[in-house]
C-alpha cells in the first residue's frame, strides 16, 4: 500500500464537485446562458446532507446500504486510480480488472436502489443503463489491453504512468485510446450527447431517472459518486495524453480541468442522440479502442 498516494486521492475527491460545476458552466456559457455557479454542487451536497428523506413503502432493509455502496465503490476505484506521482494507493498486477469491477459494482448498487422503489421509471432507466454499459465495458477493456501492450505494464500505475513519454512512436494509438476513453466518459457519467443531466422529462432520462425516488443524504451520495467517477475518468484520459513530469499533481489537476471544459464544449455544441441511435455512437468507443489495439499489435 502506498500511503503517500492518499493525498492526491483526497485532493481530487475534494475537487470532484468543482469538476462537475466546470462542465455545467462551460456548457451554459456556450449556449448563451449564465448557468449555475461553479460551486453549486458543494452547496447542493451540503443541503442534501441536512435534509430528511422519503423512503418508499416497497423498500427492503437493504435500501439503507445501497447509496452508500454506490459511493463506496467509486471511492474504492479512486484508491486504484494512479493520481499521484507515486502511483495509486493500492497497486497490484491486474488491478485494472478491479477498477472496472468497482465501477460496475457502483452501477449494480445504483440499479438495485432504483428497483427498490418499484416504480416503472427506475426500471426503464436501469434498462437503458445496462444497455449502455454493455457497449462501454468491452471498450474499456480494449483500451486497457492496448495500454498494457504499449507500456508492458500489468497494473494501472504503469498502464497510465506516462505511456506517451515512454512510447512516443505509438502516439497515434494513445490518441485513439484517449478518444475511446472520452466516449466512455460521456456514457458512464451521463453527459450530453448520451444523456442530459438537466432534462426534466423522465421518459428521456437515463441516469437521472434511476435516482428519481432518492432524497436527502442518499441522493447526495449518488450525486457525489457521479462527480467522482467523472473526475477519475478525466484524470485517466489526462494521464494518457499528457506526459506527467516532476510537476505531476498540478499537471493532473490542469488536465482534469481541461477535459471537463472539453466535455462542456461537446455538450454545448451537440444535441442528445436518440436513444435507439445510442449504440451506434457507443460503438465508436469500441472501434477506436480496437484500432488502437491493432496499432499496438504490429
Amino acid at each position: 500500500m502506498n500511503a503517500a498516494g492518499l493525498a492526491p486521492v483526497l485532493l481530487l475527491m475534494g475537487l470532484a464537485p468543482l469538476v462537475q460545476g466546470l462542465v455545467h458552466r462551460t456548457r451554459a456559457l456556450i449556449t448563451g446562458r449564465r448557468g449555475i455557479p461553479l460551486l453549486q454542487l458543494y452547496r447542493d451536497l451540503w443541503k442534501l446532507a441536512r435534509k430528511g428523506t422519503v423512503v418508499s413503502r416497497t423498500s427492503s432493509g437493504l435500501f439503507a446500504a445501497l447509496p452508500s455502496a454506490v459511493l463506496a465503490a467509486a471511492i474504492g476505484a479512486a484508491l486504484l486510480a494512479p493520481l499521484g506521482p507515486g502511483g495509486s494507493v493500492l497497486r497490484f498486477p491486474g488491478d485494472f480488472v478491479a477498477f472496472a469491477g468497482l465501477l460496475a459494482l457502483s452501477r449494480y448498487a445504483l440499479i438495485l436502489a432504483g428497483f427498490e422503489s418499484g416504480s416503472s421509471f427506475e426500471g426503464m432507466g436501469a434498462s437503458r443503463e445496462v444497455t449502455i454499459a454493455t457497449f462501454a465495458e468491452p471498450a474499456l477493456f480494449l483500451c486497457l489491453a492496448a495500454l498494457a501492450l504499449v507500456t508492458g505494464g500489468r497494473d494501472m500505475s504503469s498502464l497510465f504512468g506516462s505511456p506517451m513519454a515512454r512510447a512516443p512512436l505509438l502516439a497515434p494509438a494513445l490518441i485513439l485510446v484517449a478518444g475511446s476513453l472520452f466516449v466512455l466518459l460521456l456514457a458512464e457519467t451521463g453527459q450530453v450527447p448520451v444523456d442530459d443531466p438537466t432534462t426534466h422529462l423522465e421518459l428521456t432520462m437515463i441516469h437521472e431517472v434511476i435516482v428519481l425516488d432518492l432524497g436527502g443524504p442518499d441522493l447526495g451520495c449518488v450525486l457525489y459518486a457521479a462527480s467522482l467517477k467523472l473526475t477519475l475518468l478525466a484524470a485517466l484520459i489526462a494521464a494518457v495524453l499528457v506526459p506527467p513530469g516532476p510537476m505531476h499533481l498540478p499537471w493532473m489537476v490542469a488536465g482534469v480541468a481541461a477535459i471537463a471544459v472539453v466535455v462542456g464544449v461537446v455538450a454545448g455544441f451537440s444535441a442528445r442522440i436518440r436513444l435507439d441511435r445510442l449504440p451506434q455512437f457507443l460503438t465508436a468507443a469500441v472501434v477506436l479502442a480496437s484500432l488502437a489495439l491493432a496499432l499496438t499489435l504490429r
Binding site: 460496475a104 440499479i111 438495485l112 454499459a133 454493455t134 465495458e137 468491452p138 477493456f141 501492450l149
Partner: peptide, 28 residues
C-alpha cells in the same frame, strides 16, 4: 489481449442479467 474485450462483454451482460433477476424477483 483482445479476448479481454470478450471478458468485459460477458461481465456487462451478466450485470444486466442479474440486476434484472434481483430487481424484478426480490425488489418492488
Amino acid at each position: 489481449a483482445i479476448s479481454l474485450a470478450g471478458l468485459g462483454l460477458i461481465g456487462a451482460l451478466a450485470l444486466a442479467c442479474f440486476t434484472k433477476v434481483d430487481g424484478v424477483i426480490f425488489l418492488g
